[in-house]
Design a protein around this nucleic acid. Sequence first.
DNA 1: TAGATATTTAACTAATACTTTAATTGCTTA
DNA 2: TAAGCAATTAAAGTATTAGTTAAATATCTA
Lengths: 105, 105
Amino acid sequence: MAVDQVFEALASRPRREILAYLSAQELTAGDIASRFDMTAPAISRHLSILEGAGLVSSERRGQYVYYRLNKDSLVNTLTGFAFEICPTAGPLKRESRKLARKGGV
Amino acid sequence: MAVDQVFEALASRPRREILAYLSAQELTAGDIASRFDMTAPAISRHLSILEGAGLVSSERRGQYVYYRLNKDSLVNTLTGFAFEICPTAGPLKRESRKLARKGGV
DNA sequence: TAGATATTTAACTAATACTTTAATTGCTTA
DNA sequence: TAAGCAATTAAAGTATTAGTTAAATATCTA
């Protein structure tokens, strides 16, 4: 797993915001660009960094390129790191309880 | 919470390694520097970035400055972000189950 | 107090990253 | 095929970052 690239990719607020947008639905590059005060090439670069880190995937459908979030990749990297640094920290355990109560698998 | 600073701080392999070292025990700046092929001033900078992000704390005791990990800060930020992006992703739930089974509070 | 050790700050250099404009590629449709 | 939209790549400039050495600050000890 490309931990270096993941953390590098996350070290940018616009890139984290892109992930947040993609968490709700897949979007075209243009959709994403329209949500930022930034040129299309700039967004394209950010997207390629996110894709290089394995955090998103892209698929061309006709004229458009659709991007979607790779949720497992993101969560695996973050929790993997968190557990490595801090195997039994409180907050994560609290989240765990919450999920367990909800019956989340 | 300074999410920006946290992710900025984590976007550096040596800084993540420092956190890993500190996860086991508190260490002086010199202890840490001796583990890297880097000058003391460079390490000092890394430490101040980590401290600025709230990920570590420092305390001078006599001649030495001891650094320790702020576990909650790290885990809160990472899991907070992971849950924001991806509230019910598989891996985290898997970790949750594991912890629940162990009886981890 | 003088000297030695630990750490940080300052000043500088080299390498990276970000953004913009301009040019290019891929696809659609008239 | 030509025109037009979507998206990326290329080129170039600016800004930020990481690292170095040298100097300053803090503390300990002889």
